[in-house]
Design a protein around this nucleic acid. Structure first.
Lengths: 269, 269
DNA sequence: GCAAGCGTATCGTTCAGCGATACAGAAAAA
DNA sequence: TTTTTCTGTATCGCTGAACGATACGCTTGC
């Protein structure tokens, strides 16, 4: 299966060669966004040389591109002296994406309503091939730093929302996604065997929701339901996550499965 | 006062001429980001011609740039046929910005802790000249769609966080910001007179926090405290917002002023 | 029916981006 | 200390990549 759009992680080597063939492709733009994407792999401010290396361009190009992105407000210097960081204009585009995304628009009010009746964490995630990206997060009492950030993503194959999404796809697509996924376990309880995952997906198809136990985070239980896009294919999912120290799995399901299914119905209309 | 970085809204006419002088400025990048910024002013999918018009380029350029951004995953077609929308790769950069922003890193755990002890909305906003941009939001029970989105911004001069930030600036800078702000009132109670605003800012400087009553949203009371960056100048603010149907202003202040001040101290270390 | 919009494709000209080169300042190594 | 090696910044001639005019097939609306 050929994917038409590049995804993070997949573009490190392939991009240049792919674009050589494309007469409409504007290389400067690709390079500029490669520069911005250099930060994906970093936990610290990046120097010009590091950016150049990461974006596979020379220092001169990095200099000019960084200069430009800086003037435009997408990159700034780190206050403590050395290196560069992404700057705030990024968030303007974030807002555009979220505001204009039809699923986010429809789901947010329902999720807020759901959150009113529930003390656990409620999330909306968007389907993006091998991963599922958090677009809206409504925290519970107990959260970590990472769990609060928009843009965070988890693998499709082992998350509750992802499994729910898989359950609405053709089995060939499911196999394809499982196959292409990097299935290094995130916790000791992450299911990585294709056959086991397929079973769980089938179970989700039967029940209408997917349940995961500590597959991404120790101590976490999560239930997810897929949301269809206009073509009928799943475009995202909503999920509800709680702590195993508060809930027996059965109780979690009997309490929340109806609520989250109803919320999904409301969103689908 | 000259601003070195462009800000949204300020770049519609000035950008081209400004950049003509700059030999290091890579125009293609500017054009590409102008295309992405076309969505700032839109509530719907945009056609190529609309994008061209908004970015002040011809249809051919818009075509090539949109094509490129599409291949890279930053723009997609609307599912219902016509027009284009921002695509999900935007969120990867959102995550980079938030993860790497030192203030967000330091503030988030404290805000989560604060949110545990408080039933009202808690926010972190970042100072960006005339506006203040929401970077992290922790909802209360009662929220609207807009109030949940990262990237949303409010004017500095009339928001609680913005006033708190102003109270930490030189009075010449305060005057400059008030002067350059578009002060069309957002509600009947928005304060727009420079003298009145300066008074409120002085009051915030005295008390250590800023209080606003229905200046942005009817029925809302908000209290804000500034957060200093490494150079001592304010880089953002935290705020706490409640409903006037739940709180008398005096009670709101006596209850939350100590909590939010302490949280700000914790963040500042 | 024609008109006007959409998104897409092609191609020769030219000017904008490339990348080699140089420089000042601050760390890090000697 | 001096030397080296990083920073980030600035300059400039060459050339190939982006420009923009032009054309096309489709759908939508009059």
């Amino acid at each position: 299966m050929v994917r038409s759009l590049l995804r993070p992680g997949s573009d490190t080597t392939g991009s240049q060669k792919e674009h050589l063939e494309d007469p409409l492709f504007t290389r400067s733009i690709g390079r500029a966004l490669d520069v911005l994407s250099a930060f994906h792999k970093s936990e610290q401010p990046l120097s010009l040389s590091e950016i150049a290396q990461s974006a596979q361009i020379d220092r001169s190009a990095a200099q000019r591109i960084v200069h430009t992105l800086r003037r435009l407000g997408y990159i700034r210097r780190d206050e403590h002296g050395r290196g560069f960081l992404p700057d705030i204009r990024i968030l303007d585009h974030t807002l555009d994406y979220l505001r204009l995304n039809p699923l986010v628009r429809r789901a947010t009010p329902v999720l807020l309503e759901l959150r009113r009746n529930v003390r656990e964490r409620v999330d909306l995630s968007l389907f993006d091939d091998l991963r599922v990206v958090y677009a809206a997060r409504m925290q519970s009492k107990r959260e970590t730093f990472h769990a609060t950030l928009v843009g965070h993503s988890v693998p499709t194959y082992c998350s509750s929302g992802g499994r729910a999404i898989l359950s609405q796809l053709e089995s060939s697509e499911v196999d394809d996604i499982i196959d292409r996924s990097d299935r290094t376990p995130l916790t000791p309880r992450t299911l990585t065997e294709p056959a086991t995952i397929r079973d769980k997906v089938a179970e989700a198809r039967d029940k209408g929701y997917a349940l995961t136990l500590e597959e991404i985070l120790i101590g976490e239980i999560a239930i997810g339901v897929a949301l269809p896009g206009p073509d009928g294919k799943p475009a995202g999912a909503i999920h509800l996550a709680g702590s195993l120290s508060d809930w027996k799995p059965e109780d979690f399901v009997t309490r929340f499965a109806p609520l989250i299914s109803e919320a999904a119905m409301d969103i689908t209309r």
